[in-house]
Design a protein around this nucleic acid. Structure first.
Lengths: 215, 215, 215, 215
DNA sequence: AATGAATGAGGATTCATTCAT
DNA sequence: TATGAATGAATCCTCATTCAT
């Protein structure tokens, strides 16, 4: 992947600043391409043309074509995760229902705010690398949400990690479905999807998980 | 997308018979390729090499590359639909639970019997044409199952077509998930998936739909 | 290698005739390139430019870049072999000395007549494919000459195939040396080389092989 | 081709010492690469990666890519020359036979001891720069051996430099042949090669050169 | 109806080298 | 002296599709 992260808070040298700028420029161009023409249109040539960065120079920042796509996805999923974290943090009553609902509605917020991310994340899953990243992201998300639920007493350890993962995966696919053609998301699909996942997980809930716990 | 369906019952001339044979030969070759090397390996060249039909001649029977893939999918989904029809016909007690369960287990049967179909149908969905065909097939399936359920009194007209469609779509994605890595299907995912879809639809069931109706 | 040999005596269809012509055109262009700029200059682009045949079309006639070079070498070595055969056939007295001398001088004739072949065959050996072809050609040549010598009673079976092969290889390298810089061949190196190989093989000769046998 | 020879005996400044160390590090890395993956794998990038010296910095020590390869060859041939010198110095009886045999066996020693040198020196001759260096090295070697032979009375001035050079060249090619596939050298080829070169040179020997001269 | 032949367009990636800092 | 960054030029090869025959 070899993405230039440059995540250090301080930009020490001008060279590093320029490098970061260029990476941004490449990713912005890549984002535009994917949003407008789909993942398959993301070629080294198209990125070069759209970003003004020579093809050969792309390899300074990204190990190969897929790495560009992945960097894009990483950048965007980070934003999504942040939204989930914020919204969950603001919850006053924790229950299986509020947990699922808050999480899924946080996703909806980001998809609404970032239409290009819909293209990349929901439709771009045809790309093997994105697909795999999605799987791992879902797995991480499932682990975190499950730990939260167990810690809060909403579910016991009997809620298998595999079940949590399945719930997240199904939630993910609900969104894929909802946004497949309607760029603003099919409201019915979203609502019913939330209901379906909630109903499924309530089967694993403790009484507290069903009723809700004040924080 | 002028697919040669060849669905006419009668073969009128020897020329047409020869044509049908050739289409079969092409599809068999295509099926082998996809099963062994994935959808991306299905190129006009590879099909020509594997089938013995010259590249240019492929265009006598199929409008373009995607049409070959689609014909493949059509042939295979027909078999799948047949299995569903047969298994549903053999049911003695109709209920939301038996309907969902029987249908989904019929799918499992076919996936088990035809591992190449798993590759084409579940993993090949990365191809846009296959994806779209899948959507339409799911829609048709949803319509038929809903009509069956309503006719049998398992659900009322209040069961929206969109809800039926969502259920089928989610069922489909459950399988995609279950067969994603495990060629024999992840049993846990399948069982839980059936449970999830069943639980969802029971929310729309009549008392008869919950209890079951003897045929 | 998949070279279009078209070795049939009759050209049946105009299409085949055109195909042969094109192959010739490609090989002629390739020959020119190698002669003028060395083996490394033989790229798909350069051949396309020099022959007027689009890069993609090269792959109609040759499986890959190396196949072009090999076809070139095959075409030329066939001519060389023919010269050797003719000159050996004209020999009145067979001996180790006349055998070696006639063979090596036949090579000299061809190198003199075809300066581009010198570039390809003697200097082009840097290419792995050509190198390997050279090895095999030398092995075949060694086998044939040895059989001729044994059949004519110039040497017994005690002349190991490995020794014959070594003699041919050394002869080959003598020429590489002689033509390395001088496009007309360093006469001294050629003469001394013939002497060296002859002296070596006379060590394995029968009395008849030393004195000579009238045919 | 401004190769950094670094042959000066004295290291005057710490900076120069550091420079020498770095050159060594680069050459060691280059040697490893060539030995393991062939001459073609010696790229500026691969050397940089293997040595830890940035690509751009390579140009501080070497004018271009070929210069690295040449420096490598120089370093290794120096070792080879040393072996020849030592073994010849230990000879008690000098004759054409012992001279050739001792020299060639010294080469064998080094090839056996340094398998990576075989790759560089015998198979790496596909590189034009190495090839040319080889030619010059052979010429120098021929000159020295001839002077030794003439001085010792083994041959007269009638032994032309060109003949000596040819002998060395052929000896060189015998080794190329012997080590072409067998990393430990084809014994038959080596033995017969020694015999062939010896027989050739004995044609130019004085009676003393044939019989041997006690030192 | 059948197909050999032809190809424009595009694919990803690597390379040696330079230069501003 | 040292080097991160930059890139023009090139590499081979594949693809879906068309068209003249």
């Amino acid at each position: 992947m070899a993405v230039v992260t440059g995540s250090s808070v301080l930009r020490r040298t001008p060279a590093q600043a320029r490098s970061r700028e260029r990476v941004e420029r490449i990713l912005d161009a890549a984002s535009r391409i994917v949003a407008e023409a789909g993942v398959e249109a993301l070629t080294t040539r198209s990125v070069a043309a759209a970003s003004g960065v020579p093809v050969a120079s792309l390899y300074q920042y990204f190990s190969d074509r897929d790495a560009i796509l992945l960097a894009l996805v990483e950048r965007d999923t980070a934003e999504m995760d942040e939204q989930v974290r914020a919204d969950l943090g603001a919850l006053e009553v924790l229950s299986v229902t509020t947990l699922v609902e808050t999480t899924m509605r946080a996703y909806v917020k980001v998809y609404t705010r970032r239409p290009d991310f819909v293209e990349i994340w929901l439709r771009g899953r045809t790309n093997a690398a994105v697909h795999e990243f999605g799987r791992q992201h879902n797995r991480r998300t499932a682990t975190e949400l499950r730990e939260l639920a167990v810690a809060a007493g909403l579910a016991t350890e009997q809620l298998l990690p595999a079940a949590a993962e399945l719930a997240v995966e199904i939630g993910d696919r609900v969104f894929q479905l909802a946004y497949e053609r309607d760029p603003r998301g099919d409201a019915f699909v979203i609502e019913e999807g939330i209901a379906m996942v909630t109903a499924y997980l309530r089967g694993y809930a403790t009484p507290a998980g069903l009723e809700g716990v004040r924080r």
